[in-house]
């Protein structure tokens, strides 16, 4: 566990900053809900008349006047984008930073197998994401209670569960990429998250490119679908899980056979 503990210590600052930033925005969003609720009729009509833009964010299928409708759009975007950026950053840095910062020579001349390095580094990334999501969920539930609303337990847990799965998938994909890089790949990780987010918006805007939902992890995090169905799309989620597993296996394969220069 030495490598895992070391990774957690090294990633502490980034973890605290990202968790604080996402949680802060989410809490702010929840606290402005009661104020916005008063003007919600006007806003709902406004949002409904924005054509493709409305569809892109699923606002054509959500009632923005309810807590969950509001939560799925506003908080969902914060949690989705913020969480995906952090997960991608943590995943893509995990292995590549050792070669970029020339610390791989220090680490790999100790009696530790490369497979152990991969396992413990992956564990550290997954722990960070899990703890981040627990903190955010806890603060979110507390904030909903503080504004005097009932907690729609199932819907909130489903939404947070979907975004947690999305973050794990991004982390695993970027972790796999990380094993192939010799330099830092923060740009690649963040760029990938941004591209996937926009692919989902495009898929929402027109049915002609609906297949994009099978490519982007944001496909199974669509708040409108989750709230309407009361469950995640098992097919899309399974594709996500399989993709994540394949990327982790690729990381083991690549890193255990890689020349460290």
């Amino acid at each position: 566990m030495t490598i895992m503990n070391h990774e957690l210590r090294q990633g502490r600052t980034a973890f605290v900053i990202w968790t604080a930033a996402v949680a802060f925005l989410l809490v702010i969003c929840i606290f402005i809900y009661p104020e916005m609720q008063e003007d919600m009729d006007v806003m709902s009509r406004l949002f409904a008349s924005m054509g493709s833009f409305t569809a892109a964010f699923g606002m054509d299928r959500l009632n923005f006047g309810t807590l969950m409708g509001f939560y799925a759009v506003e908080c969902g975007n914060i949690l989705g984008l913020g969480g995906a950026f952090f997960a991608s950053f943590a995943g893509v840095s995990a292995l590549a930073k050792e070669e970029k910062d020339r610390t791989a020579e220090f680490l790999l001349t100790h009696p530790v197998s490369r497979a152990r390095v991969v396992t413990e580094k992956l564990a550290a990334v997954l722990i960070q994401i899990t703890v981040m999501n627990f903190i955010i969920l806890g603060l979110s539930l507390l904030s909903v209670r503080l504004i005097g609303e009932d907690i729609p337990r199932k819907e909130i847990l489903l939404l947070h569960g979907a975004y947690y799965l999305l973050q794990l998938e991004f982390a695993c994909i970027c972790f796999g990429i990380s094993a192939f890089l010799r330099r830092g790949g923060a740009g690649i990780g963040m760029g990938l998250a941004a591209v996937m987010y926009f692919l989902n918006l495009i898929a929402n805007m027109t049915k002609h490119v609906g297949f994009l939902k099978y490519i982007t992890p944001f496909g199974y995090c669509d708040g409108a679908d989750i709230l309407a169905d009361g469950k995640l799309d098992a097919g899309l989620a399974a594709i996500g899980v399989l993709t994540a597993c394949a990327c982790v296996l690729a990381a083991y394969w690549r890193y255990t056979g890689k020349d460290i220069r």
Binding site: Q10, F106, P111
Partner: peptide, 23 residues
């Protein structure tokens, strides 16, 4: 090694402890 690099934000004792821990 000929060129020495360590992890950022660590003290000498942390590096030595990490190295011993890995062993």
């Amino acid at each position: 090694p000929s060129e020495v690099s360590f992890y950022p934000n660590m003290r000498v004792r942390d590096v030595l402890k990490l190295s011993a821990g890995l062993r």
